[in-house]
């Protein structure tokens, strides 16, 4: 240990630590004011990566993510929630798609707006009927092409993707998927009915608009 002659180093250390705490204070205060975006899109990514692993735990995790999103929305922040299944490199691709226009941030949202995007097996089932993906033509075609490539590559192992696609395409009336057998989907529905999420921007998938 460095031989001490006075208390100078201790004072410097405490000042440094207070400055570092000030950074996190400033960051959170900025999020609180809506001046900066929270990183919820990535929280959604991580949480939903577990979706394919089972239904009981994801239910709780998903609820947590939506609760956080709702907190952000109430405080005037905006955020993206990205749900993806745990199949290989899907999270990266979705993140890249949503970052279009900027390397680090998803497309801009209005203050207080929460957008939801989903991609991959279980996540698709939980989203496709209930919510709408807002994608421009290029984004949509990219995701569609990727989904098709994925189908070809993985074959019948991921039949949930086929199921999601079939559901999405057949559900042109826009009614909710009841899908009570899929608990994540049930969780989303329940949260919407409770008013936890009220400001989802309209989304579109495979050339059709779904949801309310």
């Amino acid at each position: 240990m460095k031989p001490a002659r006075g208390h100078g180093r201790l004072i410097v250390l405490i000042a440094l630590e207070l400055a570092l705490l000030g950074v996190i204070f400033a960051r959170h205060a900025a999020v609180e004011r809506g001046a900066t975006r929270v990183r919820l899109p990535f929280a959604g990514l991580h949480t939903s990566r577990d979706l394919a692993g089972g239904y009981a735990q994801p239910y709780i995790q998903l609820e947590g993510v939506f609760a956080e999103a709702d907190t952000a929305r109430r405080k005037g922040s905006n955020c993206w929630i990205v749900l993806v299944s745990s199949e290989d490199d899907r999270p990266w691709r979705v993140a890249r798609t949503l970052r279009r226009g900027s390397e680090t941030e998803p497309p801009a949202l209005a203050p207080g707006e929460v957008a939801l995007a989903g991609y991959g097996g279980t996540a698709m089932l939980s989203l496709s009927g209930s919510y709408r993906l807002r994608l421009d033509d290029r984004e949509r075609s990219e995701i569609d092409a990727e989904l098709t490539r994925h189908q070809h590559r993985e074959g019948a192992r991921h039949d949930s993707i086929f199921a999601a696609r079939a559901k999405a395409e057949s559900d042109s009336s826009g009614r909710h998927l009841t899908a009570t057998e899929y608990r994540p989907s049930g969780a989303v529905d329940a949260l919407v009915h409770k008013g936890a999420i009220v400001s989802l921007r309209g989304m579109e998938l495979f050339g059709r608009r779904y949801g309310r």
Partner: peptide, 18 residues
């Protein structure tokens, strides 16, 4: 300390920054 500040803002810690 980082945890306490994050919990105050009800947003969980911003892990990369934290």
């Amino acid at each position: 300390c980082l945890f306490v500040i994050s919990r105050h803002y009800d947003q969980g810690i911003d892990w990369p920054l934290g």
